[in-house]
Amino acid sequence: MASYVARRLLYALPVLFGISVIVFLVISLIPGDPATAILGSFATPENVERLNRQLGLDRPLPVQYLTWLGGVLDGDFGRSFTLNRPVLDELADRAGPTLILAATALVLCAILGLAAGTVAAVHQYGWPDRILSILVLIGISTPSFWLGLMLIVLFSITLGWFPTGDMYSLFGGGGPLDLLWHLTLPATALAVVATGVVARLTRANVLEVFRQDHVRTARAKGLRERTVIRRHAFRNALVNLVPILGIQAGFVLGGAVYIEEIFQWPGLGRMLVTAISTRDILLVQGGVMVIAVAFVAINLVTDIVQALLDPRIAVR
């Protein structure tokens, strides 16, 4: 097991290196001159050149990359020119709200998806299965940004049950209940697609386990069907579902960009959209890097949890 964890950790290193290269390259391929973007189009050539030297943009790409990477490892993501503050500070402020939103959506999709998928598998081809499969189909086909808008139209504007956006009420808010009230719609909109995917894969996995001999043995020895489902089918299916939940974290983190934008949620996603439109390169770089690294960490954890659930995986 220790060797498995070591191998997974070691394997994550080249991936992290790859991520950093991609993030750096993508951003440095930007057409146009960042110095001009900062100084405006009326800047004198001398000033642009001076700023370029100041930013290190006159040096060869590998040197720029190493300088940038050194800074990143040191926690120095540079300074956002639109916000006029260190990128790291901005990231720290924005990470919390995104974490709350994404984690809530992930928990929602895990609970609902696993439950719906198991029920559908148990009643394969029965009515619950049919109804659920239609719901799942609609779920995975829904554009989450449109769903967010429709939820606002229905529950905020028409019914007035929930706020249209923001994380806390402007006046008199701030408690956990206020947060939950603000969180309901965005978390739902974010969770729908992921729930559909999880339900679909859960159904397939539980059915796969149902076909195995040990389930037949469990039934043959007279266990109640409930116990067979819970102890044998669901638990064994869970082994393969854990990494799937990890992958959903990626879809949720990506989808958070839309949802944060629609619900004015003060997280990393909304920061990214703004940063892209103002061409605040360092902020985009930092935001993308942080989310990608978080995703790698989540997948690392799900891989290890999977190996804990099924020790055979560590040996393979």
Binding site: V15, G18, I19, V26, L29, I30
Partner: peptide, 25 residues
């Protein structure tokens, strides 16, 4: 395949966002 792994290590939409950020909308 390691490059592909690195691409897949990005949350799905995020990479698209970064690329559009680089190339311009």
């Amino acid at each position: 395949m390691r490059s592909i792994d690195a691409l897949m290590a990005f949350p799905y939409l995020l990479l698209a966002l970064a690329i559009v950020a680089a190339l311009g909308p």
